[in-house]
């Protein structure tokens, strides 16, 4: 799959890139939201792992932008955050079009599960989105 990771911590982006490419995925990574949006403008991704707490341009701003440009449908966004965003806020974002949310720190198993989940979507383009 074609994946995008947006996180301001290089360690995390490194981890994602290294681990996921090893198991066969194409991974792009940026450390800020603006660049991420640029990338999204130019190509579609099978999933976007988005950190919330980033300086200047937060993950929520990215989501807002994607909402405006109606790119959420084509680019499933998985919130990947350590911030204390409440369940209700998550549910709300999911309602708006975000795919799901996983909390940091994440276990590798959880990550693989999520990828499988996302992978299923790939094969079921016409089926309705699964809300977590």
């Amino acid at each position: 799959m074609k994946l995008l990771v947006i996180d301001d911590s290089p360690d995390i982006t490194d981890l994602f890139v290294k681990v996921l490419t090893t198991i066969g995925h194409e991974v792009a990574a940026t450390d800020n939201g603006k660049d991420g949006l640029d990338l999204l403008n130019r190509q579609k991704f099978d999933a976007v792992f988005l950190d919330i707490a980033m300086p200047n341009f937060s993950g929520l701003d990215v989501i807002e932008n994607l909402l405006k440009n109606k790119k959420l449908k084509d680019n499933p966004v998985v919130l990947f955050t350590a911030s204390s965003i409440t369940d209700i806020e998550v549910k709300d974002l999911i309602r708006k079009g975000v795919h799901s949310c996983i909390r940091k720190p994440v276990g590798i198993e959880t990550l693989f599960e999520k990828l499988e989940e996302l992978g299923n979507i790939q094969y079921e383009e016409n089926a309705t989105r699964k809300l977590s």
Binding site: S9, D11, I12, K18, T22, A82, P105, I108, L111
Partner: peptide, 20 residues
């Protein structure tokens, strides 16, 4: 929490032969 992510992440990766 942020530093813990890569710690746990890399540990997990290390544990997974498929990856590392």
């Amino acid at each position: 929490k942020t530093p813990l992510t890569p710690i746990i992440g890399w540990c997990g990766a290390l544990r997974t032969p498929r990856v590392l």
